[in-house]
Design a protein around this nucleic acid. Structure first.
Lengths: 191, 191
DNA sequence: TCTATTATGTACCTTATAGTACACAACCAG
DNA sequence: CTGGTTGTGTACTATAAGGTACATAATAGA
């Protein structure tokens, strides 16, 4: 029995996400957000709280999507090798100049000074751990597909490092062929 | 025939570097710099210019040191494999929690929103290219030490990605053993 | 010692930014 | 139609941050 909200909060979060992604948390002003979303500051504050709280919701949403995608893709198919290659290949447009040079919001945030805030740091660490865990689980499950000296745990960690490194290099807008060549190298570790 | 400077500019740059490294460019205020260096703002401006110019000098100095070290280490020894392993191992303290969780100033800056500024971006790209070139050159020079299918170029690129990825993961303060395990995996690519 | 010149420190200005007060608009129940 | 309730837009406040004016201190040379 009151005035209903005139916007979709999820859509607003996605618009805010794009700004944070491009300019970083510290480099994004509330005016940037209001311009991108078309919402006035009181609406933002009523819906999401202050800038910090807004960012945490953006970051959670971002993380959830990537984790959900990883859970799905890494579960599919008969071979761990194939599943991981498919998963990594899906990121090629984001690691090359194809989809801009924003890299990864999580990586960008990890490198930003915001990391002092425990709430942000904890989320990023949890996200990194979760992705690595998904890789590790799949590698462990299909262990018999690999040689005896194969170490699923450190391989999962290495794949994570490569994934994050490619997201850093994304800022240089490399062409897709270079990224794919790196993925080919990465797949050599799965033997 | 004038009043001499009462501080060492290089030392001031290093002190400023530590602040930028910890808090990021956007997260660092000039007051942070004056507090860290003990210099008043007019002294900073007279010596280095504005915040941007100061940061560029800090970044150049940082890059130069890393490149100089890489040039030295990657040149030494009879085997490319050994040289690269020594070079990477030197970063273990910075990639694990041993030397704090600042990661790499260049990676942090790459992820920061400052990247819009061409001068910063160009420097980072040049730095990435230079490091990769040093790796590539050594791998090419010792190509006969590897198998016929070995590809020095994409291997160099992959090592760069791992290096940068480890610098991102440094923020999670992993223990040194995990980092070394990743380096062992990396060395599997050099065969 | 005196002077020209450059460094330093205080105190200030301007701008931008996070956050809010308040008046008004839109909706629903009765 | 009306009143209570919640969302929205304007306009404001407070603060912090980048940058600078100006007076003063320290040096080298005459």
């Amino acid at each position: 029995m009151a005035r209903p909200r005139s916007f979709d909060p999820d859509q607003a979060l996605d618009l805010a996400r794009d700004v944070f992604w491009r300019k970083g948390f510290q480099g994004t002003s509330l005016d940037d957000i209001t311009a991108a979303t078309g919402l006035a500051k009181p609406s933002l504050y009523a819906a999401f709280g202050d800038k910090n709280a807004l960012f945490l919701q953006v970051l959670d949403r971002y993380h959830q999507r990537i984790v959900a995608n990883a859970e799905r893709v890494l579960k599919e198919g008969p071979s761990a090798r194939d599943a991981i290659e498919r998963w990594l290949t899906g990121f090629v447009p984001f690691c090359s100049g194809v989809k801009g040079t924003r890299g990864c919001l999580s990586v960008n945030t990890a490198a930003d000074g915001v990391c002092d805030q425990k709430e942000v740091r904890n989320r990023i660490e949890r996200f990194n751990r979760k992705l690595e865990q998904l890789l590790r689980n799949r590698l462990r499950a299909d262990r018999t597909q690999f040689s005896g000296v194969f170490d699923p745990d450190s391989t999962a960690h290495t794949i994570m490092a490569i994934y994050l490194g490619l997201m850093v290099l994304a800022k240089d807008a490399p062409d897709a062929a270079r990224v794919r060549a790196t993925l080919n190298q990465t797949m050599r570790l799965l033997a």
